[in-house]
Write a protein that binds this DNA or RNA. Structure first.
Lengths: 263, 263
DNA sequence: CGATGGGTTGAGCACGATCAATGTAGGTGG
DNA sequence: CCACCTACATTGATCGTGCTCAACCCATCG
């Protein structure tokens, strides 16, 4: 299984390593997809801003709620999630899922204090970027700054879509939409095959993302399988009927700002 | 009623006027609240970026979905809302409410294409800021750029909170939370009295914001009144028991980033 | 082998949707 | 000044999606 391979490769690497070429591939790809006119030197500057790389086991809290981190984190490998803890039972509501290449808490640079936490959902290889370095970028590289700004806004757009899903889509449609979105985002960074991708989450985590109970999440997934829209076995999702899935979800990838454009 | 006064004052002004001192008070206040160290010259630069001011009647669409605006808009007076139109019946789901001082579609500057529309909910006095001018700011004024970036992220934080409300709070709690949030945001820009503020929306618009049916929204409001938490008469909301309302909603204003801090 | 974490199934319940009427206040024209 | 109209608020009745609780299954792993 590809997931296994990847993770073991990850584990094989040293626990702390120097940033080097290739380590931030997905992140650079994410920048370039949205603005290929971004100068090579800006990409280099971005990579050079990385202070250190760490491997973190699943479940690790990257940023605690209310914390005041002095650095932001780029996921190089693995999945993470932003969450808010609920007042009553302390359960975690997942706000957004974060994939390799995501500059997860870049937001903490302007915000200073975060209103939510970030947790690794799988083993993660992450790079730390000191706020000092980001600040320096804003002072000297307006173009890269705008692209980074853009990234945080795509994140916001994803939240808005989820908001819309919660309010207007049925559980089935919402689930279909999430799958469409994940597939599309993964494909951009080269993590999806023709019509399949690895989904290293439990149904419980998925439920928490969509805002469903675990039980109902399970039933919704059964529906998607019964309708022969997807299969999901051993951590891999296969999309059987992309068009039908997309139209069920009324998924339109425009909000992901995937078009290349001078920013 | 103060609302009436304000609106008639608005109507009395000319239809298109030059930007001048005092016209962007709320917007400047919003900048300064979060970073009082922002230099005077940056505020001036911000005001100078305003190209023209217009008065728009309630219902006007400021930005159409999928549009590619060449300028962004600051609300000087009035309420607006971001929305996404639903696929099935074409109804509008309100994503966020926007108040005086909000740089509503600043996001369209990095994003280029918006995934949602913006509509005036009341008569609005709005200022247009050409993207060209914003770009110039990013090239020459890193500090102001960071504060503008921050603004868009506060917007995102508000969406995240709404997302959380949808998933985890009951309709009653969600409504209470929205009232707490609006009160807090309005107070910052000087639009709320001790414990009251003008809410120039219909129950239907409120329902669309929270994602409820109009009927249920009405019942929820009745609950809030029956519990003697608020009153809402002739467009003015009075908060009777702030502490109780806040704890019912588990409202914590941290996500609004209202603390003053060098950014 | 039992323990554990995920996935699956069933039964009953509740929050909030929907449909349909009715109430009420402001605004307009005869 | 009243009759009417319109927009918004309110009420009642019924229905359905998704929650909760509780049990059971199954694979993996120590």
């Amino acid at each position: 299984m590809a997931a296994k391979t990847r993770l073991s490769k990850v584990r094989a690497s040293t626990d702390t390593e120097r940033a080097g070429p290739g380590t931030a591939t997905a992140a650079i790809r994410k920048l370039r997809v949205r603005d290929s006119s971004l100068h090579e030197s800006s990409c280099t500057r971005f990579v050079e801003a990385i202070a250190r790389i760490r491997i973190l086991p699943a479940g690790t809290v990257l940023v605690e709620e209310r914390q005041r981190p002095g650095e932001s984190t780029v996921i190089l490998e693995g999945w993470a999630a932003r969450y808010i803890r609920t007042a009553r039972n302390g359960a975690e509501q997942i706000l957004t899922l974060n994939l390799p290449g995501d500059f997860i808490d870049l937001q903490s640079f302007p915000l200073k204090v975060l209103d939510h936490g970030v947790r690794c959902l799988t083993t993660c290889r992450v790079a730390a970027v000191p706020h000092q370095a980001i600040r320096a970028i804003t002072e000297t590289d307006p173009h890269l700054t705008r692209v980074l700004w853009l990234q945080t806004l795509v994140d916001a757009a994803i939240s808005r879509q989820r908001l819309f899903s919660m309010a207007q889509r049925t559980a089935l449609e919402h689930a279909a939409h999430l799958i469409c979105e994940l597939f599309t985002r993964l494909r951009v960074i080269g993590y999806a095959d023709e019509y399949s991708f690895e989904l290293p989450l439990t149904q419980e985590q998925l439920a928490s993302t969509i805002g469903l109970s675990t039980v109902h999440m399970n039933r919704v997934l059964q529906q998607l399988r019964k309708r022969e829209l997807i299969t999901w076995q051993r951590g891999t999702v296969h999309i059987l009927k992309w068009d039908d899935l997309q139209s069920l979800a009324s998924f339109d990838p425009a909000y992901l700002s995937l078009h290349d454009e001078p920013r």
